[in-house]
């Protein structure tokens, strides 16, 4: 008992020190992350329009309006399609690129840099290049399609293809990131697992991939999917520069709708409500990632 009493003091001091040490991070987290999110949440419950002198509590009016807003649903649907197309393509191509680059010898560094370049470059400049690539008459894409005898289109101007053209740009942009993450994952696979597999009787490329590479890449895969999903959810700059949500809302995506409502249309509170939906979706992806990683983290 005396001992317990004696240790209580230091333990409390330790707890205090811990709190003090965590305090700066805690304050910063509120200031930089949670605070603004809460502020946006509160704003979404008002009727405030940008620059207006008065503000009124409006309850869930903005959310009700969103529920009946055709553009919001188009935007959500487009975003889901965009993510649904670009994430699997990015992950698959990123994995193939990583495995291919891992297997080449001398030019590995060059290829890695080449693939990573789009991730590091500003999309604003790159978007102009893509605009030219997709140009209906002189663009590279149509020239290739013509040469192959495939049907051509005015990709960015046609409502049936514009979203997929943007998704292709998104894949191009995120491919390098997926590839680098996969390469890190590949490097982390102990080589003796492949050797053990060879001793156990499997040395074909498919068996090696299926028995070791793929399962060992599990954590990297979850991470890559989550990162590319979040990045795809955030698609904005290509839309802003290349299509402005058009033609006829065919490339209207969540972040673009949010910026347009909040800034162009000056509907700040409504924009805040869309932001909350956006935050919620992003949060859902992050949670899914955490849960999946936790479940798969039992690897030695």
């Amino acid at each position: 008992m005396a001992e317990a009493k004696g240790t209580l003091g230091p333990r409390r001091a330790e707890a205090l020190a811990g709190t003090l040490l965590a305090l700066p991070a805690f304050i910063l987290m509120w200031l930089m992350l949670l605070g603004p999110a809460v502020a946006v949440g509160l704003l979404s419950l008002t009727d405030w329009n940008f620059g207006e002198p008065q503000i009124r509590f409006a309850g869930l009016e903005n959310y009700a309006e969103m529920w009946g807003d055709r553009v919001f649903w188009i935007s959500l649907r487009n975003t889901v399609i965009y993510v649904g197309v670009s994430v699997p393509a990015t992950v698959l191509l990123g994995l193939l690129a990583a495995i291919a680059i891992e297997s080449v010898g001398p030019l590995k560094g060059f290829y890695r840099a080449a693939y990573f370049l789009p991730v590091a470059s500003t999309l604003l400049a790159m978007a102009l290049v893509w605009e030219f690539m997709f140009h209906p008459s002189v663009g590279f894409v149509n020239q290739v399609f013509r040469a192959l005898g495939l049907p051509t289109a005015d990709w960015l101007q046609n409502p049936d293809t514009a979203l997929f053209a943007l998704a292709a740009i998104g894949v191009w942009q995120n491919l390098g990131l997926a590839m680098v993450l996969f390469m890190a994952g590949l490097k982390a696979i102990p080589p003796d697992l492949y050797e053990a597999l060879a001793m156990d009787g499997a040395d074909g490329a498919w068996e090696r991939f299926r028995r070791v590479t793929w399962p060992m890449l599990g954590p990297a895969l979850v991470f890559v999917v989550a990162i590319t999903a979040i990045r795809s959810f955030q698609v904005f700059d290509t839309v802003q520069v290349l299509t402005e949500g058009g033609p006829s809302k065919s490339t209207e995506v969540l972040l673009f709708t949010m910026v347009q409502q909040g800034f162009t249309f000056l509907r700040s509170a409504y924009g805040a409500a869309i932001t909350m939906v956006f935050l919620l979706l992003t949060l859902a992806i992050t949670l899914a990632q955490t849960v999946l990683l936790d479940r798969r983290a039992h690897y030695g």
Binding site: G246, K249, F265, R267
Partner: peptide
Amino acid sequence: GQNALRITDTIND
């Protein structure tokens, strides 16, 4: 009204 600029966008579509 508050939707002035949204109307512009709708007409454009």
